[in-house]
């Protein structure tokens, strides 16, 4: 019997002692962490992709709470997460449109020549340091697939033609590939935007024609065929200034483009009477 009593006393005394010490410590050593941070961190997808501009989700969460950072920066999370964060922060979410990366080059291995046999480190960023790359076209895709390798969501694959293909389902618009590409071939566009210039070359027409069959040669036909003002001629390169204005009136310009530099990203989405537009970039088998 006495053993039982002593046990209880001993354990009780020990427990009490530590409880008191910890209670005091809790008061003296408490660090305030905003519970909102933990809550938001818990919601974020933990992909730690850095697309928001912060190193890791937790830092983004901290920035939202402490620095009043915008809540719609998490590309992988999309609208769903933004809404949830909004609820925590007590804000109404501003709608974010889904953006995806798109490839502004059609300089396939066949269309755009290379300068010569290149020997050395086989990544785009390293190749770009050797005489600005081994493609004759200074603006074109180098085709060594840095974007494929760096994409955290496996959304990019290099096709047999030597160009990246973006799987728009998987693409979250985090923008890593945009940062990685030394030639700025990739750019983020709203997923609903359909018309695009598949070229970056600002070389004089003669030069760009000489180095790539598919380059924009600034012939201006598409601009002239488009009275709505959707297109404008920039520095030797057509620019889509107002994509929403690219209406049926302008479609003729696509047919007339001598190199195919202007085209729809998803021709299958466009209903047209007489012409079927070929699908430009095929996915790797």
């Amino acid at each position: 019997m006495s053993v039982l009593i002593i046990s209880i006393i001993t354990l009780g005394a020990l427990a009490l002692l530590f409880a008191v010490i910890l209670a005091i410590a809790d008061i003296k050593l408490r660090v305030e962490v905003d519970p909102k941070i933990e809550e938001i961190d818990g919601i974020l997808p933990q992909a730690n992709c850095g697309g928001c501009g912060y190193p890791g989700c937790k830092n983004y969460a901290t920035a939202i709470v402490n620095k009043g950072e915008d809540i719609n920066k998490c590309a992988p999370g999309g609208q769903e997460i933004t809404d949830l964060i909004a609820k925590i922060m007590g804000l109404e979410a501003t709608a974010t449109e889904k953006v995806v990366a798109r490839v502004h080059c059609r300089g396939t291995e066949e269309a755009a020549k290379r300068k010569g046999v290149y020997e050395g480190v086989k990544t785009c960023r390293a190749v770009a340091l050797v005489g600005s790359g081994d493609k004759l076209c200074d603006w074109g895709c180098l085709g060594y697939g840095d974007c494929e390798e760096e994409c955290p969501f496996d959304a990019i694959t290099m096709t047999d033609e030597g160009l990246p293909y973006v799987d728009e389902e998987k693409c979250t618009g985090c923008g890593i590939c945009v940062d990685v590409c030394p030639k700025d071939i990739l750019e983020l566009h709203p997923i609903d935007e359909n018309i695009m210039i598949f070229c970056r070359s600002q070389d004089p027409p003669k030069q760009s024609r000489a180095v790539c069959k598919n380059a924009c040669i600034a012939c201006n036909i598409c601009v002239r065929k488009c009275p709505t003002g959707a297109l404008e001629m920039g520095n030797n390169l057509v620019e889509v200034v107002e994509p929403e204005k690219f209406t049926e009136e302008c479609y003729g310009g696509i047919d007339k483009c001598p190199t195919g530099a202007i085209n729809f990203v998803h021709p299958e989405k466009i209903k047209r009477e007489n012409k079927t537009v070929e699908i430009i970039i095929k996915k790797k088998e």
């Binding site: 410590a25 050593l29 408490r30």
Partner: peptide, 8 residues
């Protein structure tokens, strides 16, 4: 206790 201490 150690945890609290380090955190602080």
């Amino acid at each position: 206790f150690v945890e609290m201490f380090i955190r602080k």
